[in-house]
């Protein structure tokens, strides 16, 4: 396979350095961009994310990225969403009031339950529900690094792995070449890098 050109969506949500390095480590060519036109030139798109859903959506709208991203993903092109990049795929988020999101997947993003330490921060186990190319070589029950206070309640059959923290929540969702993780694979050691490698292979697969 030739080098996979990976556009990392830069909407001003902080540091993209680790994501770019993880993409390069996995054999891709990272291009950090906030230009909507770059999406169509990409072999794959990665959308990292920290911060709040409303801020993320506002930034994406302001940069003219929300609609192009929606079109890109709905066209079935390879997309990896990370953390907030997973949550904004759903219809709405309850973070700081109810805010509409990209609406690509059915469901809403809600706060982790009361009575546990929030944010959910640290290494937690991921349980595989369905085999999928994105999870190739990942043992069931492997640990990944999470930092989040909200989680999506998916209302369609897209959850391929889940984790437990006060509640069972989607750790990885996938539909075609759309893959999204609640954890940070670029902060999850060798198994996290494996997710990037799997995603790039999936992206390069012309099938």
């Amino acid at each position: 396979m030739g080098a996979v050109r990976v556009v990392i969506v830069d909407y001003g949500a902080g540091n993209l350095r680790s994501v770019a390095k993880a993409v390069a480590y996995a054999g891709g060519v990272p291009v950090i961009s906030q230009n909507p036109h770059d999406l169509w030139e990409a072999d794959a798109v990665v959308m990292p994310g920290v911060g709040a859903a409303a801020d993320t959506m506002r930034s994406l709208e302001a940069l003219g990225l929300a609609q192009p991203l929606r079109q890109y993903i709905l066209a079935g092109r390879p997309f990896l969403g990370i953390c907030m990049g997973q949550q904004v795929l759903f219809e709405m988020s309850e973070e700081g009031g109810v805010h509409p999101c990209l609406g690509i997947l059915k469901g809403r993003v809600v706060r982790l339950p009361q009575g546990i330490k929030v944010p959910h921060m640290g290494w937690n186990q991921v349980h595989i529900l369905k085999s999928h190319p994105a999870l190739e070589g990942i043992p069931d029950g492997a640990y990944f690094y999470f930092v989040h206070s909200y989680y999506p309640q998916a209302e369609e059959d897209v959850v391929i792995a889940e984790a437990h923290y006060g509640v069972d929540f989607p750790a990885v969702v996938a539909r075609g070449k759309l893959v999204a993780t609640q954890f940070h694979p670029e902060k999850s050691g060798v198994l996290g890098l494996r997710i990037y490698e799997n995603f790039l292979r999936l992206a390069a697969d012309k099938g």
Partner: peptide, 11 residues
């Protein structure tokens, strides 16, 4: 810090 971030994949 930049060198560490470039080569280390844990927080």
């Amino acid at each position: 810090v930049e060198r560490i971030a470039d080569q280390i994949f844990i927080p």
